[in-house]
């Protein structure tokens, strides 16, 4: 769904613009993979697989559904903000 190709008649994007956007997209895909794994994975569909690991007397999947997923979301959003703000600086971007 991402249109990397520049089509005719359209302004060419600079190499640096393309690299910036590609880095952003890679980062988003990575973050959403972790996001889905901890919530839909550990907390939901894969819960039975984690039943061997006990935390607070119950299975790890349960803890992920009610606690762990939220902590992970927090780490993901914080990481994205830090990484992208750094990327903006690296590309000398100001808005």
């Amino acid at each position: 769904m991402v249109d990397e190709k520049t089509t005719d008649g359209q302004k060419e994007l600079s190499e640096s613009d393309k690299r910036y956007w590609a880095t952003n997209l890679r980062l988003i895909v990575g973050i959403l993979c972790v996001w889905a794994t901890v919530s839909y994975g550990f907390g939901l569909l894969l819960r039975p697989l984690l039943s061997g690991i006990i935390i607070g007397g119950v299975d790890l999947g349960f803890w992920f559904a009610q606690q762990g997923a939220i902590y992970t979301f927090l780490a993901l959003v914080a990481f994205y903000a830090w990484r992208m703000n750094k990327l903006d600086d690296e590309f000398g971007l100001e808005d």
Partner: peptide
């Protein structure tokens, strides 16, 4: 719990 917090990951990145 997951739904009302996880949406912020979408909001923050997308």
């Amino acid at each position: 719990i997951m739904g009302w917090t996880g949406g912020y990951v979408l909001l923050a990145t997308l």
